[in-house]
């Protein structure tokens, strides 16, 4: 029982960063943009939040957790939105190939994260020495009272505020996409930009806003990882391939943020299940880590063998739109 509870907690812990990324990417893809720069953007978001908190705590003898957290969130949103903006300018205004821009952005973002991570590690006195304890405590604070309820408390109420934000954002995103006027317009832009344009929708504006806000949401996944998961420190490449898993999760969730919520927990569980299977050697543990990717591949193949209109990616995904093209 104890083991199962820990497993679920850890699975959620792993999944939340991926959920942020997937929600952001779903909003982006609904506008027809396939942003493969999300992994880089999550690095940018993570390090920016950390830098903000680091300098706040460094220059303030008695830092307040709430202020630190606010600064970190703000820095993350700005940096990751900047990443989304670079992608948007290149793909929407300059109509560059989305895959190429995305990959370049991932190279850039990962380098950005590691470079500044390395640099402030040096400022802090060595690798693993960065510590923003005060700010991180705000991110790691559990819900008082409720988290003490046996079992339910540990499984549902023992996380920091970003975890709940991730779920709330995913729910709001689903409501927005499926039940609002603007969400309907967004879907139309992703399905058929020419149609949306003819209907008087400003296609570029929707693409910009969706991509930039999608990037900002994804960047929060980086912040979650740095603050709540690692407790306010940085290791180069520590975030690993979670950004790519976020893109994989979009497919698993069939472009529905609500499905991404449980999907993220499944992914998180698969990511760490090797720890909980008894009798594994070091070598077989490594093989177990391959599970999330194999599952994604299976989902990919299975959905591609079925042919249902509503379960397909947005029809214009990956292409740029130019009104006077003829």
């Amino acid at each position: 029982m104890e083991l199962i509870i820990t497993f679920i907690q850890k699975a959620i812990g792993q999944g939340i960063a991926i959920l942020f990324g997937a929600t952001g990417e779903i909003i982006t893809e609904k506008s027809g943009n396939l942003n493969l720069g999300i992994p880089g953007i999550m690095y940018m978001g993570g390090i920016a939040g950390l830098i903000g908190a680091f300098f706040y705590e460094r220059n303030n003898p008695a830092p307040s957790p709430a202020v630190g957290a606010a600064i970190a969130v703000l820095c993350t949103l700005l940096a990751s939105a900047l990443g989304g903006l670079i992608y948007s300018v290149l793909t929407i205004t300059l109509r560059a190939n989305q895959n190429v821009v995305g990959l370049a952005l991932t190279t850039f973002g990962t380098g950005f994260g590691n470079f500044f991570g390395g640099s402030i590690s040096k400022l802090a006195g060595g690798v693993g020495q960065i510590s923003v304890m005060t700010t991180a405590s705000a991110f790691q604070a559990k819900i008082p009272g409720l988290s003490n309820i046996p079992v339910i408390g540990s499984v549902i109420f023992s996380y920091g505020f970003l975890t709940y934000s991730a779920v709330i954002i995913a729910v709001l995103a689903a409501l927005f996409i499926n039940h609002t006027h603007k969400g309907l317009n967004l879907r139309a832009v992703g399905e058929s930009p020419a149609t949306a344009d003819a209907a008087g929708i400003n296609v570029s504006a929707y693409k910009y806003v969706a991509t930039v806000s999608g990037a900002a949401i994804a960047g929060m996944g980086g912040l979650y990882f740095v603050m709540e998961y690692l407790g306010g420190t940085w290791t180069n490449n520590g975030f690993g391939d979670r950004g790519w898993l976020a893109i994989a999760l979009v497919i698993l969730a069939l472009w529905n943020p609500l499905s991404a919520i449980w999907g993220s927990i499944v992914f998180g569980g698969l990511y760490i299940i090797y720890i909980y299977i008894p009798g594994l050697t070091r070598a077989t543990q490594e093989l177990c880590k391959v599970l999330p990717y194999i599952v994604t591949i299976i989902v990919l193949v299975v959905t591609s063998t079925r042919n249902k209109e509503e379960k397909q990616p947005p029809a214009s995904l990956g292409t740029s739109y130019f009104r006077e093209e003829r």
């Binding site: 609002t180 006027h181 309907l184 317009n185 879907r187 399905e191 020419a194 949306a196 929708i201 509503e310």
Partner: peptide
């Protein structure tokens, strides 16, 4: 009314009809 219909395939007739109309909040 264009020769090549400008409609979004996966949406309903009603959704296509109100596409792009200024409307705030919930549908």
């Amino acid at each position: 009314i264009h020769q090549h219909f400008k409609l979004v395939n996966v949406l309903t007739a009603a959704e296509n009809i109100i596409l792009g109309l200024a409307g705030s909040g919930r549908l």
